[in-house]
């Protein structure tokens, strides 16, 4: 019996390792390919770090490839603005619907999931007249794509936030806070949001990932974000383009990892809470 269990455990361990290895290979082979391509000397053969030297010369890269610089800045701003607007729009709305208008929850879900069924090209056609007004009021900067991106991330953000809201008794918590003298703003900021932390981070996580990787809408609207810039650079210098793609992947990975690290754990067990406690204990 014990021997059988040991064999079963060994088999499980091997299976786990195989799965992890396959996944790592799946993710790292493209990385290897990118590194290999960007370190090739295409003229003479052999290896060269010229592409990376050019790319990491921050003073030069902006003037040599202006699209890259503006695309990178636009994408970073979009990765900040999109989740911010999405959260400001969705968290109060979903909380309010849950508290006061539960009959509307199906409608809200339908509206939020709708963008999932609309192809980006159709979305662009629909958004074109609206963006004429956006350009009229705010100008033609790439950063205003954040409005279109908010629509794009709605389905994913809705699902993440909905799961979070289902996990807590929003009504009782809100009513308890209000009976203690809290206004709606305090209820949202100090009670609902901290308890939705994981859901908010998941939604932001998805929004950031989607924003950093978005190409179609930006390209069709003739705006330059990082993906479009990479595409444009790729036409003249494929190696720089691939090197930028590599860095973009690493950047996205670092951002997402940092977000998940900060937001991990139960209420009161976040990195900051733990640090605070350790400080207190030391004192």
């Amino acid at each position: 019996m014990t021997g059988q269990r040991a064999r079963f455990r060994r088999r499980q361990t091997i299976l786990r390792r195989v799965v992890v290895t396959v996944v790592l290979v799946f993710f790292f082979v493209p990385f290897y390919g990118m590194l290999d391509f960007t370190t090739k000397n295409l003229a003479t053969g052999g290896r060269s770090l010229q592409t990376w030297k050019t790319l990491l010369d921050f003073g030069e890269i902006g003037s040599t490839y202006p699209d890259l610089k503006s695309g990178f800045i636009a994408s970073v701003l979009l990765a900040i603005l999109t989740p911010a607007i999405m959260l400001m729009l969705l968290v109060p709305t979903m909380t309010w619907v849950r508290l006061r208008l539960p009959g509307l929850s199906r409608t809200l879900e339908f509206i939020c999931l709708l963008p999932l069924t609309v192809p980006a090209i159709v979305l662009v056609v629909g958004l074109t007249p609206i963006y004429a007004w956006v350009t009229y009021f705010f100008g033609g900067a790439t950063v205003w794509l954040c409005f279109a991106y908010v629509i794009l991330v709605l389905p994913y953000a809705y699902r993440a936030l909905d799961t979070g809201l289902r996990a807590i008794d929003v009504r009782t918590l809100a009513e308890a806070a209000r009976s203690l003298g809290a206004g709606w703003g305090t209820v949202m900021w100090r009670i609902i949001l901290p308890n939705l932390r994981t859901a908010v981070l998941s939604a932001s996580f998805l929004a950031v990932a989607l924003t950093l990787g978005e190409f179609t809408i930006a390209n069709l609207f003739s705006r330059t974000n990082l993906q479009v810039a990479m595409f444009l650079v790729g036409k003249s210098d494929a190696q720089i383009s691939v090197a930028v793609a590599f860095l973009a992947l690493v950047f996205a990975f670092v951002v997402l990892f940092a977000m998940s690290f900060v937001g991990s754990g139960k209420a009161g067990t976040s990195v900051f809470a733990r640090l605070r406690r350790t400080k207190k204990e030391t004192a």
Binding site: T172, L173, A182
Partner: peptide, 27 residues
Amino acid sequence: TSKRDMGMVFQAYSLFPHMTARENVEF
């Protein structure tokens, strides 16, 4: 509600999960 100055204990557990007992009472 917020201006009525009434203390309420609910049927469902209503402590704010992200706060300690002390922080709940201090709220």
